[in-house]
Every structure is written in structure tokens, then in C-alpha cells.
Simulated scan of single mutants.
Amino acid sequence: MSTLVRTNSFALKRLLLSSTLRRPFASKASPSAAADKVVNCEVDDDEVPTSGISRPLSEILKEINKKVPESLIKGRTEANGFIARYIPWHIVNRIMNLHAPEWSGEVRSITHSPDGKSVSVVYRVTIYGTDAEIYRESTGTAKVDEPGFGDPVQKAEAMAFRRACARFGLGLHLYHEDMC
């Protein structure tokens, strides 16, 4: 029973995210075939309509693994003079929304160091495909006295989020570009 409810609630989520419902000002002259199926027919529990948003995980991961355009990459000079290249968290978020619109993320833990000088965050990203769901976790750490925008927990969370997405392949080329 719980599997059936999960399937139906997942289908409902996809239906609510469909472009015809999400964009109230879009032209309604030609409704999509998926919307017609939902409105005009009865659906039994074995045959749940999809909105066209979801795809198999292999397709989602293929898109996420593509090289990120240079214009979206930022650089930060580290204390040792090394320039660290990264994709800002809000850009990673948009890329995930574009290629894996049914992803979710959550902070799993926040740990302050015993000396109070840093904070670490564990973040989990889950991608839902039509055939399965998978997740990746990673950590991010920020110093408490580090200058810049945002508090240390925000910085550590953004770092952990980016790294968890890199475990799916998003922006992974930045970690090994010196080898190319």
C-alpha cells in the first residue's frame, strides 16, 4: 500500500509541475497530449500518467555530465595564490532544475569544530528518474572568521551542495582540468 501511495503522490507531483499547469499565462490553444490523457480518461493504479518532465536516470546523468560553459564559472584566489575555479551554488541549482527537475537536496548534519573555528555541513542531493532514484552526499567546511558574504554555515552548505552535485558529474571537469 505504501508503494502505491508513493507512486501516486510522485505522479501528482509531476502533474503539478507540468508546463500547462505551471505557466498560467501560456497559450491554451493546444493542450499537450499528456494533459489530455489526465483530463479525458480514467487512470488505474498501474498506469500513472507522466507530464513529460521525468526521464530515465541515464539521460539525466548524461546531461548533467556535460561541460559547463566557461561564462558560468567563477574564480577565487586562495591564500597560497592558487586560483580555485568553481560554479556558484545558484548556477548549480539552475542546472539541476533544468536537467533534473525532480531533484531534492537536504542538509544531513551541521558540525562545529571543537575549537569553534570552523563548521562542516553534510549535504545530500537526490535525483529522481522514471526508472530509479539515486543520491550522493558530500561535505563542505568553512572557517568562522573567513571574510565574505554569508555566514559560515551558508558557505559550508553551498560547498557541500556543489560537491554532492559534482559526484553526479556536474562540473566535475573543473576538478581535473589541469590533467587535460
Rank of each mutant, 00 (worst) to 15 (best):
F25V: 07
T7A: 12
V119W: 04
L61C: 07
S51F: 03
K62L: 03
E137K: 00
L12Q: 06
D36L: 11
D115F: 01
T111K: 04
R6E: 15
V119N: 10
T77S: 11
A156C: 07
T111R: 05
P101Q: 10
H173N: 14
E106A: 05
V121D: 11
V68Q: 08
A132D: 15
Q154C: 02
H112W: 08
V68Y: 08
D145C: 00
H176I: 07
S109A: 09
A11M: 07
E177A: 12
T139H: 08
K13A: 12
S27N: 09
M159R: 14
K37N: 13
T7N: 14
A142W: 06
L172F: 13
F161I: 13
S27Q: 05
L21E: 13
T7K: 11
K143M: 12
Y128L: 01
A34M: 11
L16A: 12
K117D: 08
A158S: 14
N80G: 12
R23M: 02
R55K: 13
L61W: 06
N8P: 00
A11H: 05
D131C: 01
V144Q: 07
D145Q: 04
V68N: 09
E59K: 07
S54V: 03
F161H: 14
E59V: 03
C180Q: 14
L172V: 15
I110N: 07
V107G: 10
W103R: 04
G169C: 08
V121Y: 07
M159F: 02
F10K: 03
E146W: 02
H90V: 00
S30W: 04
E59Y: 01
T50D: 06
G171M: 06
S118Q: 04
K37W: 07
R94A: 09
W103Y: 10
T77K: 15
A142P: 10
A166T: 15
N97C: 08
D131I: 00
G150V: 01
P69Q: 10
M159W: 03
V125T: 03
Y175D: 15
H176D: 15
L17W: 05
K74Q: 12
N65W: 04
K155S: 05
K28R: 13
S2P: 00
S113M: 03
